[in-house]
């Protein structure tokens, strides 16, 4: 029915793109509510036991993953299947590395500021929600990777990759706000 879409002057990719932006816009209000809750309940206080080096490392890991995601997308745009696969795999790997880092921080956090304390409540909720979004981002990247085994991405047919990578950037940007809110303000 692509022909029918064409006769109606519909640009499906433009519609998908708008839909994704609207969805990410909506999701950003979720994070806004969580960030608001952190300041409303805890002000700017934070415990000294936060693992600052680890927080910095996982932030860098996540930022780097956006770079490889972008490279993967560019490869898909130019039809370089091998480069696309390699870069997306690296992105997924970095995503998992980030999740492992959050896991380590969690196991330390359970000891120093358990979820039943004031800071623990906001810390575990914020990082938990974000980690869940990272997981969905990994799943989205994995989905376009699996689809890429059957379908050749190339000029004019790379929307799937673009969408997944855009969502990955969104998850990344969310962390750019969460990291200072939890680790840096005081």
């Amino acid at each position: 029915m692509a022909a029918a879409a064409k006769t109606r002057g519909e640009d499906r990719v433009a519609i998908y793109r708008l839909g994704l932006w609207l969805f990410m816009g909506s999701e950003s209000f979720l994070f806004l509510a969580l960030l608001f809750s952190r300041f409303y309940l805890q002000g700017v206080q934070r415990p000294a036991e936060l693992n600052q080096p680890l927080g910095l490392v996982i932030s860098i890991v996540l930022l780097l993953s956006s770079l490889s995601a972008y490279r993967g997308e560019t490869c898909a745009v130019y039809g370089d299947q091998a480069g696309f696969r390699r870069n997306i795999l690296v992105t997924i790997g970095l995503g998992f590395l980030f999740l492992v880092g959050v896991g380590i921080e969690w196991s330390e956090g359970f000891h120093f500021f358990p979820p039943s304390t004031g800071f623990g409540t906001v810390f575990f909720t914020l990082t938990g929600f974000h980690a869940f979004h990272v997981l969905t981002g990994v799943l989205a990247l994995a989905a376009v990777l699996v689809r890429g085994r059957k379908v050749q991405y190339g000029p004019g047919s790379y929307w799937a990759v673009e969408g997944a990578v855009k969502y990955w950037h969104f998850v990344d940007v969310a962390w750019v706000f969460i990291y200072p809110t939890l680790y840096l303000v005081s």
């Binding site: 809750s37 309940l41 979820p115 039943s116 304390t117 004031g118 623990g120 409540t121 575990f124 909720t125």
Partner: peptide
């Protein structure tokens, strides 16, 4: 968790 518990 302690969102609505003043004790937490």
């Amino acid at each position: 968790l302690g969102f609505f518990d003043p004790a937490k």
